[in-house]
Design a protein around this nucleic acid. Structure first.
Length: 485
RNA sequence: GGCCCCUUGGUCAAGUGGUUAAGACAUCGCCCUUUCACGGCGGUAACAGGAGUUCGAAUCUCCUAGGGGUCACCA
């Protein structure tokens, strides 16, 4: 038996926004295809002209490329089953719908939107689900001809059976059966001759020989209608893999309105793309072992739909943060600095020693955007800080001791020729030892005077080096003055 | 409301008839320490509820509850 190649697709509609949930769908479809040595196809679903957004398609390309999800076929790279943009395929669908009319699986419906609306409103008022009553299915040939001749607009509806059941097997949810009676005669071709999403999907997936349809589980309940279509055409039904949504909390999907739902939002906040991909891969999937950190290639290696969850997953920003921090810590010093530089500039410290900045910041930063706030004191001392900061129980310091410390430390530092970590370190430690005081007792007041802040990334020595001798001495003297006052 | 799906700690989750019910994030405590972090060690914390089936149920069945989805000439 010939083994067919796995083909999956990601079929976004270009909205100008790469939702985390969509990215995850793309990721899973990509991982599934690649883990089976198959092809991953990108198709743009833009049948709704009213929703056209400038530059939206480019955004899809850019994000996918950036995270390393490469498509084997798509609008820009081509392929044997193109075009890959639905609007360029728009003439392909109508003939298929007409074929269905001939075979009795579809029919023209001349009912106006208003009529439908009315019937729907009435159904709602009576508390029952609306279903089109198949009125136009029973039009005589002559009537149809007459309406056609009059140019009355129509849609083409699927003629679903009114009895019996339809079942299908989802690879993760198992077999699902529905009563055909609950199915509505959905519109296949709109009055403007454009296909509806559902119809275009079936045609395109078949024509592009998609073997595994991976999509959000909101399509679970319309899948029987898809299958009826495949059957009407006599086409092979693809495998279905429906994926639960990404949630903001137990009752809401992660949505655009939350402000935190797009890939771009996270990148702009200083998250690393590797961390984002890694994190979302784990939202609704697990590798079956205890690994949590994965590169894209490792994900391809480890991915299996067996690890996909049936229930929705709540997006946990805290865990993403943690994972991001893990990735930041693994960066080389060069890469860390490259990522941090825009934020250094924002903080006005881009001229400082990047080795030391890296040393003190890399283990502390979880998201790059928080960096300026962490180092604000470097660029500018808040001279109005309270001298109560000099008091610290654990370091055994108070204002009095701090004053004494600064009084003997300042001249020594002033006399120091080589202003670097080693020399400052040796000098300060030597002084503490000579005076028989805890390192902390000496270092605390120095750091406070240098930073004017209780909590700082890095200690007194690193901060002194970063500030440079001149500024460091100035701050120390200012601190001493405050203590004397 | 009809139909479909889901339900293990606060969160992500392992688990497929017999386990002291993993692990991670978060949280709390301790250690390390030049503040804060990093790192290390440890603690708190869960099978939605109820009936069955079975020698034995988180695992199988049914009911209830809760949640989600869907019911467009939107995708």
């Amino acid at each position: 038996m010939e083994k067919t190649t796995v083909r999956t697709r990601f079929a976004p509609s270009p909205t100008g926004y790469m939702h985390i949930g969509n990215l995850r769908s793309a990721l899973y479809a990509y991982l599934f295809a690649k883990s089976h040595g198959g092809k991953f196809i990108l198709r743009i679903e833009d049948t709704d002209l009213a929703r056209y957004v400038e530059g939206a398609v480019d955004l899809v390309y850019r994000v996918l490329k950036e995270v390393g999800i490469h498509w084997d076929e798509g609008p820009d790279v081509g392929g044997d089953y193109g075009p890959y943009i639905q609007s360029e395929r728009k003439d392909m669908y109508l003939p298929y719908a007409e074929q269905l009319i001939k075979s009795g699986h579809a029919y023209r419906c001349f009912c106006t939107k208003e009529e439908i609306e009315e019937a729907r409103a009435q159904a709602q008022a009576e508390g029952r689900a609306y279903k089109y009553d198949k009125k136009c299915l029973h039009l005589s040939k002559a009537e149809i001809e007459r309406k056609l001749a009059e140019g009355i607009p129509y849609v083409i509806r699927q003629n679903v059976p009114t009895s019996g059941t339809t079942s299908f097997t989802d690879e993760i949810f198992g077999t699902i059966t529905v009563d055909n009676e609950t199915l509505d005669d959905g519109v296949l071709i709109k009055a403007d001759k454009m296909p509806t999403y559902n119809f275009a999907n079936v045609i395109d997936d078949h024509l592009m020989q998609i073997t595994h349809v991976m999509r959000g589980m909101e399509y679970l309940s319309s899948t029987p209608k898809y299958n009826l279509l495949y059957e009407a055409f006599g086409w092979e039904i693809p495998k279905y893999i429906h994926m639960p949504p990404v949630m903001r909390d137990a009752q809401h999907k992660l949505s655009k309105r939350d402000g935190d739902a797009s890939y771009e939002d996270f990148i702009n906040k200083g998250y690393l793309k590797e961390a984002i991909v890694n994190y979302i891969s784990l939202l609704g999937w697990n590798p079956g072992d205890e690994r949590e950190k994965f590169t894209l290639n490792e994900l391809v290696e480890a991915f299996s739909i067996k690890g996909l969850s049936k229930s929705p997953a709540i997006f946990d920003p805290l865990k993403l943060r943690w994972l991001n921090a893990q990735y930041i810590r693994e960066l080389s010093a060069e890469d860390f600095t490259r990522h941090a530089m825009p934020y250094y500039e924002k903080a006005g410290i881009a001229h400082m020693n990047t080795d030391i900045l890296c040393k003190i910041l890399q283990p502390r930063v979880e998201v790059f955007s928080e960096l300026p706030e962490m180092v604000d004191f470097l660029a500018k001392l808040d001279e109005g800080y309270s001298i109560e900061l000099f008091t610290n129980k654990k370091s055994k310091t108070d204002a009095q001791i701090s004053r004494e410390v600064l009084e003997f430390v300042i001249p020594e530092l002033k006399a120091l020729e080589a202003w670097d970590e080693t020399h400052i370190h040796d000098l300060l430690m030597g002084l503490a030892q000579a005076r028989e005081m805890k390192n902390g007792t000496l270092l605390w007041p120095v750091r406070i005077a240098l930073a004017g802040k209780q909590v700082t990334p890095g200690g007194a020595i690193e901060i002194a080096v970063l500030l440079g001798k001149c500024e460091a001495i100035r701050r120390l003297e200012l601190g001493l003055e405050k203590l004397k006052a």
